[in-house]
């Protein structure tokens, strides 16, 4: 009895410790974003809550105010090109376009490929699966230079479309694999029942397989979105003027110092769209949508 109560207690302590470990950096980051610069850099000690909150960092990064207007301790703008370079709005738009676009493409392509690989038997379908997976063995950095040249020659460099394609390429293998496992879970009998009911292959896919694979599509979309939303390397190399949030934030690290306030404000804001996206799809994230179709 004693030991079991202790083990319950220990489990709680461990769980809380782990949660704290993950939450702390985010919380600290969020806290930093509303601190005045004097509280961020206090030479006498670490300021935790003992400061007057300021929304200056958000006003600059999200609402496009010139940093000079809101700042009382007048920052210098050396090393950055104009006051608006701390405006994160266009990078949020770019990130959204790229993330939503590549998520949509990767999930769509992944679904079609997964259905084919799961249902149609053709020579080398197994080999094809391995080949698709092998596309992820190579780190993107290894192919970045040829990729930059190819994208430049195709006129895709520094375009949203280019980045969407790049992120889709990276996400498709995972999407195919994940979705195939979901479609494999839907018994073939259901395809066949639908065909006997009068459906063509396309109708089977559209009216039966897709609705039943909704959970898998949601899970895949979340993974693809998060990847694209946080991806840095490809975005950095494939764009100049279009900057996604991760790349934009690095420009806040300037030759005259890092703007921790702006970094944390934009970084904290960047969590929100991903969060909303996951909230939207989480209802579909439950597995077992095939439940009830067959004997358990």
């Amino acid at each position: 009895m004693e030991s079991s109560r202790f083990s319950v207690f220990a489990r709680y302590v461990l769980a809380i410790a782990i949660v704290l470990m993950f939450v702390f950096p985010i919380a600290w980051f969020a806290l930093t974003s509303i601190k005045p610069i004097s509280a961020i850099f206090d030479k006498d000690g670490v300021v935790v809550f003992d400061f007057v909150p300021t929304y200056e960092n958000y006003q600059v990064t999200l609402f496009g105010q010139q940093s000079i207007d809101v700042s009382e301790n007048s920052r210098s703008d050396f090393g950055t090109s104009g006051g608006n370079s701390y405006d994160g709005r266009s990078s949020i738009v770019s990130s959204l376009i790229v993330a939503i676009g590549s998520t949509f493409l990767a999930t769509t392509i992944g679904l079609l490929a997964a259905y084919g690989l799961s249902r149609l038997q053709f020579r080398g379908s197994q080999g094809m699966l391995h080949w698709i997976l092998s596309q992820r063995f190579l780190p993107p950095i290894a192919i970045i230079i040829p990729m930059v040249f190819i994208f430049r020659d195709l006129g895709l460099r520094d375009t949203h479309l280019g980045l969407i394609i790049a992120h889709t390429l990276i996400n498709v293998p995972i999407a195919v694999l994940l979705l195939k496992s979901f479609i494999d879970d839907i018994p073939r009998d259901i395809d066949e029942a639908a065909m006997i009911d009068g459906a063509t292959r396309l109708q089977v896919f559209w009216k039966v397989i897709m609705p039943m694979a909704k959970g898998g599509m949601a899970a895949t979309a979340v993974l693809c979105f998060i990847f694209s939303w946080t991806e840095f390397l490809l975005s950095l190399f494939l764009t100049n003027s279009i900057r996604t949030i991760p790349v934009k934030i690095t420009t806040f690290v300037t030759s005259t110092g890092s703007e921790w306030g702006y970094i944390s404000a934009l970084g904290t804001s960047a969590i929100i769209p991903g969060f909303i996206f996951i909230l939207l799809v989480q209802n579909h994230l439950v597995r077992g949508l095939t439940m009830g179709a067959i004997k358990d």
Binding site: D189, I190, E192, A194, L289, A293, K295
Partner: peptide
């Protein structure tokens, strides 16, 4: 029309 062993109903 065919009836399958595992019912093969459309779960959705």
């Amino acid at each position: 029309a065919m009836v399958f062993q595992n019912y093969a109903l459309y779960a959705h």
